[in-house]
Nucleic acid binder design. Structure first.
Lengths: 342, 342
DNA sequence: GAAACAACTGGTAGCGCTACCATGACGCAG
DNA sequence: CTGCGTCATGGTAGCGCTACCAGTTGTTTC
């Protein structure tokens, strides 16, 4: 008599072992673990005892195969090192830490093609939900999301036409609010400085432009952008470029806080007074904006909360609830600080 | 006649469909996909044609169950928002992007218990490899790693006794080098400022202490630490604390760059001259250290490279190669800058 | 008191794939 | 020409779990 079980599995106890020990059918063990309410109190106790004694842990792969659904959340973000997405991801993780769901994180490198490729890897394993950054998917990606057969939450933006659900805020409005604040503070030659002009940065730029045009102040020479990846060092260089192009610049709205910090350091180095000679506004309100000297005005975004909300909506959808609203706008907040107080 | 296949699977083509269309056995399709060299040129072409026509994608869950091995790398880091680990993770991702392996990332929140819990979730799915940060696992975690039945790479440290493989550098040596640099620059009342004193920070502190004692300069009142999570704002507060405790402080070695940046800003705000009155050294050398004004001396660590190296070693082990060395020390580099140039 | 129902439990038959072993064809040494 | 190894291919039998349906028991309804 052979024991074929130990052949491949490495001898870990299976649900059949538990069932035998508890004197019940395998299916009852399965139910006791997944839907305890449907098994009688007594059997549940017996089964739990057998599970504990054997140290049984369900095999997630077998489970996924049998139920055609993996207990995995697929998450796609454009960058792992950008603090902005790291915060969103942290919110997702914290919301999922007490659930049975594992997380598979993909890095799209701000590339639509890379996003497609990753979706093609994620979809075949039938994830429980997909969370993706942005609303600018390629047609192929959008189709993959629509046919994934699971809840899909797009995050970090707002808009009228989500694949399924959407949590975020308006980058256009954020850009406009930042710019209006500078104009109200009395600045007139307000520049825009932006690196890595992804779709969200483009929308911030559009908001900037709308505010400037409304005030009759727009001048294309005030805009300095680059596709290069954003960094503090790059912020310094971009301010130099902007000043070379337009020496009368008296304020800058930066598309993110790294750039803003670089601008601030360049001002220090060139002995340009902030906020007197140049006003600075950042975007995202990282911790360092408040600590900086002078402290830097920024648009605070609720990134951690976006991650939490995205998971909450996905879990509700998995539980079969229908969402009260498919699109949730978490807004933003203008944090007025010394860098624009003149 | 029923078609039971469409009952659960959602009608996706299976390997049997491909086999039928190509006129071969299912197992040959499986082989053609995984070990093309073992299938004749002609069949391979036929099978590829059938795969393309049907749009067949192997089911990773079925594959994992049948082979008792999931094509997944489990990665455990203490924080998702700390740029240091984000860089390691980015290195891991970039090295794995062209492989069939997916990545499952876990966040331990600097907690040994959380790490145990995550390993207990990761191990049952039989990952292809595990990469974990640090060498200070609990005994339970260590046992889980040893019995996981896959290559294990610990990262970010160096040491004599890895679970399996280890890639990193010596935090003790880094702390000592930073401190010695300050002493050589002529500073005498050199303080240590550290937040979130995880094991790596403790080792940096030990290196600081060794250098100070060797120079006959150590004084416990020079050390200011807190278990609070590190931030730029906290760096400012800690410098205030340190100065209150020891007004004659003339330099600080910060356990990371966020703290160092906070210290720099607090010096600006309090009109303390850097490097004249106080010298500053950070740790990790984030981009902003070079861009800061004055630029800040820091210990550059090769985090991205650590991630890449960890994957390279894991992949080699999966391929059956035995590693040339189980422990790889990638070292660090002291970046001398204005903040210590007096 | 029989029919209808709910609550619980179990057996069977897969989920889609691969490990293992078997088979046949071929080449080569003896 | 025989025997044996090698190569290419296939059949069978699971991997460990859950969907589906059926059966059993006890309870309610008229």
């Amino acid at each position: 008599m052979i024991k074929p079980r130990s052949r491949r599995g490495g001898g870990r106890p299976t649900i059949a072992d538990v069932a035998r020990k508890a004197g019940v059918g395998a299916i009852t063990v399965s139910r006791a673990l997944r839907e305890p309410g449907r098994v009688s109190e007594e059997l549940r106790r017996q089964i739990q005892a057998a599970v504990d004694e054997l140290g049984y842990v369900p095999d997630p792969n077998a489970r996924a195969l049998a139920s055609a659904r993996a207990e995995v959340f697929g998450v796609l973000v454009p960058s792992l090192t950008n603090n902005v997405f790291a915060e969103v991801v942290r919110g997702i993780y914290d919301s999922l830490s007490d659930s049975p769901f594992r997380i598979q994180l993909g890095n799209t490198h701000y590339s639509g093609l890379e996003e497609e490729r990753l979706l093609q890897v994620f979809a075949p394993q039938r994830p429980a939900a997909l969370i993706v950054a942005g609303i600018d998917q390629t047609p192929t990606s959008r189709r993959l999301l629509e046919t994934a057969g699971c809840p899909v939450v797009q995050v970090m933006e707002t808009g009228p036409d989500p694949v399924d659900m959407l949590v975020g805020f308006s980058h256009f409005d954020g850009g406009r609010a930042a710019t209006e604040h500078l104009i109200e503070a009395g600045y007139r030659r307000v520049g825009f400085i932006g690196a890595r002009m992804d779709p969200r940065s483009q929308r911030r730029l559009a908001g900037y432009r709308a505010a400037m045009e409304a005030a009759g102040l727009f001048d294309p020479r005030l805009v300095t952008t680059t596709p290069l990846l954003s960094s503090v060092t790059l912020g310094r260089e971009l301010l130099r470029d902007a000043l070379a192009k337009m020496p009368s610049l008296d304020a800058v709205f930066c598309n993110n806080d790294d750039i803003a910090l670089g601008v601030l350091f360049e001002c220090h180095r060139a002995a340009i007074e902030v906020p007197k000679t140049i006003g600075i506004v950042g975007f995202n309100d990282l911790d360092m904006m408040q600590a900086a000297f002078p402290s830097v005005t920024s648009i605070r975004t609720h990134r951690y909360e976006i991650g939490r909300q995205a998971v909450a909506m996905a879990l509700a959808a998995i539980a079969g609830e229908r969402p009260r609203q498919r699109v949730v706008d978490l807004g933003f907040e203008l944090m007025r600080r010394e860098s624009t107080a003149r």
